[in-house]
Each structure stands twice: as C-alpha cells, then as structure tokens.
Design a protein around this nucleic acid. Structure first.
Length: 573
RNA sequence: GCGUCCGUAGCUUAGUGGAUAGAGCGCUGGCCUCCGGAGCCAGAGGUCGGGGGUUCGAAUCCCUCCGGACGCGCCA
C-alpha cells in the first residue's frame, strides 16, 4: 500500500505543486468502498490553485488515469476518488505475504537501534493479579512489535524485590508466620501476612515503625533479614514463572530493584558533582520547582534509598552496560509523575538517552467495576482467571470438535488467547473492566474468533493438498480487464492485507498493541466474508489457484499478527 | 485547590481535521444435502457529556462548565 500511495503521490506532484510526502499524508481511505480504494480531499488545494475543489479533482483525475497502477479516478464533491488496478496490486501483496510475511508488515524502520523495555515487574511476595496482566501482555506485545520493526530489544523484568514493603513482610512473618504454611503456598501466604500487617497497623501505628526497622536491617545486611528476603524471592519467582510460561512471556533479564543497590552511590556522587542535590527537610532531593514538579527524592531522611534513585541507576545501567539507546517503561498511569521527574533529572544530568526515554502508561484494571486494592487484599489471582478461561475453552472444544487431537494444548492457547485479546483490544489508556461474562464469551470480536479464522484458513489449505508453500498469485497473461479478475470480497481482503505495514507502523509509533489487535479483527472480517461468498476448493482452476493464494496469504498474515500480540495460532481448534 | 488522562448506541468500544459516525456484546429475524455456524447476512438502537469559538468542513483543534479516574516529597 505504501508503494502505491507513493506512486500516486508522485504523479500528483506536478499538478498540485505539493511535495510527495505531503501528498502521501493526505491520501485517505474512503468511508464507503463503492467510492474507491483511495481518496484525496482537494479542499486545501483550492486556495493555492485558485480553482474550486471539484475542478481540481477533475484535473488530477485526468493525470492519474495515465499511470498503470490506477484503474479509474473520478471527482466527487471535492474529493478525488481513486480505484486501483486490482490484478497487479493483488499479485504484489499476496506474493509478498506468502514468500516473506515479515516484509508485508515491516520496513525495518529502526534497524541499528537497541531498546530496553521494562515490563511486567511484579512485586515479590505479592500476588500476580489481573492488574499486572496489563503491563505483562502490553509489554510482551510491544517487545515483539518493536523487534518486528527492526529494533534490537532487551526485555527486562524489573522485579519489585526491594523497599520498605519487605520490612513489613519480614516483620509480619516473624510475628505471625509459619515456614510450612508459606512453603506450601508461598505467594498467597506471604500476601496474607502483608494484608494482616496493614490491618493491625491501623490499630497499632507502632507496627509501621517496626516495618521500617526491618527494612533498615535489610539494607544494613542483617543476616536473618537477608536470608528471609532471599527465600521470599525464590519462592515467588517459582510461582511467577508458571504464569509467564502460560502467557508465552519471556525476558532477556530478570533484574530486580535490589540489583542496583551497589550502583546508587555513583548516581548520588554524580548528582552532587552536577550540583543538583540539595537537602530539604532532612532528605536529599533534586529540586524541580523550575519545571512545575515536586522535588525528586534521592535519599530519605532516615538515610535509606528510594525507588527514584534505583530507577536512575537502572537507566544508566541499561544505557551504559546493556547498550540501549531507547528506554521504554511499560508501567501504569498512576506513576506518570514519577517518570516525568525521572526523565527530567536524567536530562539535567546531561544524559543523552533522556530524550529517548518513554513511559508507556496504561489505564487501571478494574474487576466488575471495582478498584483492586492490593493492600486491602482485594485481588484477583491471574492463575485463577487463566484456569477458568482454559476450562471454558476446553468445554467448547468438547462440544464442537470432540475428535480434536491435542485438546489440552489447544484449550490452553484459546483460553489464554481470550484473556490476552480481551485486554489488548482496548485502547491502551482506557481503564479495563475485567468481567468474566465478557472474557469467557468467545463470540464476536474476541481472541477465539481470530484464532478460529486462522484455523479455518489452515483447514482449507490442508484439504487443498499439494505443495502449499510454493503457491503464488496467478497472473493470467494479458489480463487487462482486471475489474473482473478479483471480485469485491476478494479485493476487500487484498486491501486489508495491504494495510499490514500501516498497522505495524502505527502500533510501534504509538506503543499501542491495540492497533495491531484491531487490525487482526479487520483482516478476519474480510477473510470470513470472502470465505462465505466464494467457493475455494470447488471452483474453476483459475479461481481456485487465486483463492488458495489469498487464503495462504491471509493465514500467514494472521499468524504473524497473532504472534505480534502474544497469542498462539492453532491450525485446528 | 492544582496537574494529567478519559467521556461516542442499554453495555464494551473504533474513528483524533474530511463524505451518510463504524464495529462487537445483548435484542429481533434469516443462512449448514456445500471448503469448520467460535461463522455469514439483515434489522432496531446515536442531541459523539453540555455550551461557546476556530475552519470551506469539528466526535476530532481552542475556551468554559459538568461527570469520572489517577497523581500532587520521604510507597513503587
């Protein structure tokens, strides 16, 4: 699509006096396919050319029909509507999709750049709730999208394995905990203790003191504190890894906050050398009042460290040691101010990567309309959610396809896919209300619908037999009457395939997987319409060859798109 | 109070300067002797939160008000 837009824009340069790039930007998709495949609004040209928009469209139409890529062009109400020559465009798109689906999506725009993507980052000794789901699956998808677009990506799980909360958990464990119970069910048990701590602390504020005491002990290397802390981490990670396996999520590095404990002094020294650090109410801070922000606390008044300092050290590490020139943080919107402060401090320190640091925020996840509050113990365990979804998928398979070979594997792919897609299809910044009735509904615009479409295409190709991988789009010699070479449902499918590149570019530019999720839906709608209206296997040899090539192109594009949003693409379900 | 984000059909939402505001769920009706009905086709359902402004053109940009979420120094 990009190539055709450029060709058309080029042909319009002389008559409009505009630059090619500008014209490409102006080309849009008409609201109704009967109007054409592309359109150029001519209203802006009216001033400079001093003619009315429709006359301009008429003139441009005459120029455009001269080029072979354009079948027809006509003015309509100030718009120039363009219909493409179907056959050559379809052949170009389908053959690329079949032979090199990466090239259908990507122009490798970011080759030569290395990005560190910080995502998931759950807290040790706390449940991996549906709240963490968003960072994990948005992050995983962003990693895949950026890689597809040419970035070398380092995925980092910035585990919450340090901070005052551990003082609280240690204090609670020593007061009420029991080794056996924790070992049997580590995360849930440790979390119970943490919740109890907060409940008790409301009656007895001296507990807070005790929590701070134990964190101080931890920072000072008290062996008892360190041993418990390490144990909490080991047990928690065992539980988290199961969830990551289920979600097909993997990291290049697990680098928790504690990893930066010995790297913070250097940052503090640097801040002092830069004359940025000042004392304020007993704490060491960077004053940001010139930028309308509260100060960034570097060292608390009791001398212990704080997350901002660790994040500064982590940013430096990712650039200096890991070689990243782009820093991405997939973290909820409630931390927006923190990242604004962080990036500003990096800028004041003269770090070149400050301008290539981006906070990819997202809306909160609610459960049946209610806010999830970790401290009050109001959580929904992701493992329960996934188990329920897999169970539902299993039931539907038993009802609809009882002879399926690998039911467990497919139920997993479909159940998990339903949960992932439900999250990713919504605009990143919107709040997501997690409701079982929606997540477990596999009809309509859902993950299972997309997977079903892929399975359906796979099924046709399986039944077609022969050497599928060498299929190409048949181009009959001298077929100039190309309006008859592809009918409308076939053509609509080609146009969708042709927009894969635009979907990837936008998804990467906006760091928004929902762009890709919605693209898969468009593609599925187009394919299912095509499938319903055209016999494939039982058609004339020429139609059959063309439709099989279209089916294969769609299957490859769908498999790629599903991969990019972190979902499996089963061949049968 | 200040800052940021959000407000589109009963519900979940797409569209962020162009044509008659698109989908899905739910509701109503149609389509399996035919490649997978987790599908396809059709119907009902909209003062795009209210008001003002900019523009040839506004759901989209600006102002203002209303509603909601989040944040505003020693949690992350």
């Amino acid at each position: 699509m990009k190539a055709v837009k450029a060709t058309i824009a080029k042909a319009l340069v002389p008559a409009t006096g505009l630059a090619e790039d500008e014209l490409v930007q102006m080309l849009e998709y008409p609201p109704n396919p009967e109007l054409g495949d592309l359109a150029l609004p001519c209203f802006k040209l009216a001033k400079s050319l001093r003619k009315n928009p429709n006359e301009i469209a008429q003139t441009l139409a005459e120029a455009l029909v001269q080029i072979p890529e354009v079948a027809s062009a006509a003015p309509a109400g100030g718009f120039l509507n363009i219909s493409l020559a179907r056959l050559p465009f379809a052949k170009a798109i389908v053959d690329v999709a079949v032979q090199d689906v990466h090239a259908l999506f990507s122009a490798d725009r970011h080759r030569g750049h290395r990005a560190a993507v910080d995502y998931s980052s759950p807290n040790i000794a706390k449940p991996f709730g549906v709240g963490h789901l968003r960072s994990t699956i948005i992050g995983e998808s962003i990693v895949r999208l950026m890689r597809e677009d040419g970035y070398e990506v380092i995925g980092i799980n910035h585990l919450g394995d340090w901070g005052t909360q551990f003082g609280k958990t240690i204090a609670a464990y020593l007061k009420w905990g029991d080794e056996e119970t924790v070992r049997a069910n580590p995360v849930r048990e440790l979390f119970k203790l943490y919740v109890k701590f907060h409940e008790e602390a409301e009656r007895d504020p001296s507990l807070e003191e005790e929590g701070r005491y134990w964190f101080k002990q931890l920072e000072d290397g008290n062996p008892q504190a360190v041993k418990l802390w390490q144990w909490f981490i080991d047990e928690s990670l065992k539980v988290f890894r199961k969830t990551y396996d289920l979600l097909n999520v993997s990291f290049d590095h697990y680098l928790g906050e504690s990893f930066y404990n010995d790297k913070m002094d250097a940052i503090v020294d640097e801040l002092i050398a830069d004359n940025l650090l000042v004392e304020d109410q007993g704490a060491e801070v960077v004053n940001l009042s010139a930028y309308d922000m509260p100060p960034c606390i570097i060292k608390k008044s009791d001398g212990t460290s704080i997350y901002a300092t660790r994040d500064l050290a982590a940013a430096a590490y990712r650039h200096d040691e890991l070689g990243a020139d782009t820093l991405v943080y997939v973290v909820g919107g409630e931390q927006k101010l923190h990242f604004q402060q962080l990036f500003k401090v990096l800028e004041l320190m003269g770090k070149p990567y400050a301008s290539r640091a981006v906070h990819v925020s997202f809306g909160l996840m609610k459960f049946n309309g209610a806010r999830l509050s970790t401290r009050r113990g109001h959580v929904v365990y992701l493992e329960d959610v996934l188990a329920k979804a897999i169970d539902e998928a299993r039931k539907i398979i038993e009802a609809k396809n009882p002879n399926l070979a690998n039911k467990d594997q497919v139920a997993k792919s479909v159940g998990v896919g339903a949960v992932v897609f439900n999250d990713l299809k919504t605009y990143r910044l919107h709040e997501v209300d997690f409701r079982y009735e929606d997540v477990l509904n596999f009809d309509g615009e859902t993950g299972p619908y997309v997977q079903y479409t892929h399975a359906r295409a796979s099924s046709v190709l399986r039944k077609a037999g022969g050497d599928i991988d060498t299929l190409t789009f048949p181009a009959p010699a001298g077929a100039t009457d190309d309006a008859h070479a592809l009918n409308d449902t076939e053509w609509a499918l080609v146009l969708q395939l042709g927009q894969a590149n635009e979907a990837l570019n936008r998804a990467v530019d906006e760091y928004d997987p929902s762009v890709m999720a919605r693209y898969t839906l468009q593609l599925c709608h187009a394919f299912n319409r095509f499938y319903h209206h055209n016999p494939i296997l039982q058609s004339s040899p020429e139609d059959r060859a063309r439709r099989l090539a279209l089916t294969l192109a769609t299957r490859k594009a769908l498999a790629k798109a599903l991969y990019l949003i972190g979902m499996d693409a089963p061949d049968e379900m």
